[in-house]
């Protein structure tokens, strides 16, 4: 298992000792789960959500407005009505 690749895809960072530990744990778990490969599933449709649901449509009418200020207040940092983040390009 390429733990560095998984960390990158997951947007997570692990230092060297953490990497060692989590790699061991994940490999142990995925090896145990490998059992599901033995179940014959040819011609079986995957079940994505348990109860059959219909496509839900609604008329395209203006609903409740979101109070932008209330949402901006939740940000770790903001300027006026903009989210502020540290510089990420040099």
């Amino acid at each position: 298992m390429d733990i560095q690749k998984i960390a990158k895809l997951s947007r997570l960072q692990f230092n060297e000792s953490e990497q060692e530990k989590i790699k061991g744990q994940l490999e142990k778990i995925i090896t145990a789960f490998d059992r599901i490969k033995n179940i014959p599933t040819e011609k079986v449709e995957p079940l994505i959500t348990p109860i059959e649901i219909e496509n839900t449509l609604r008329p395209d009418i203006h609903g409740e407005d979101i109070n932008t200020d209330k949402y901006i207040e939740l940000a770790p940092e903001s300027v006026g009505r903009l989210y502020k983040v540290p510089r990420v390009i040099s």
Binding site: M1, K5, I6, L9, S10, L26, I30, F33, I36, K37, I39, T41, V44, E45, P46, L47, I48, P50
Partner: peptide, 21 residues
């Protein structure tokens, strides 16, 4: 992330969704 990643998706996520049915 691993079970959805390219090369593993069919063996893990998709197979699990079939067993689920």
């Amino acid at each position: 992330t691993y079970s959805l990643s390219s090369g593993y998706y069919e063996a893990y996520y998709l197979q699990a969704a079939k067993v689920r049915r």
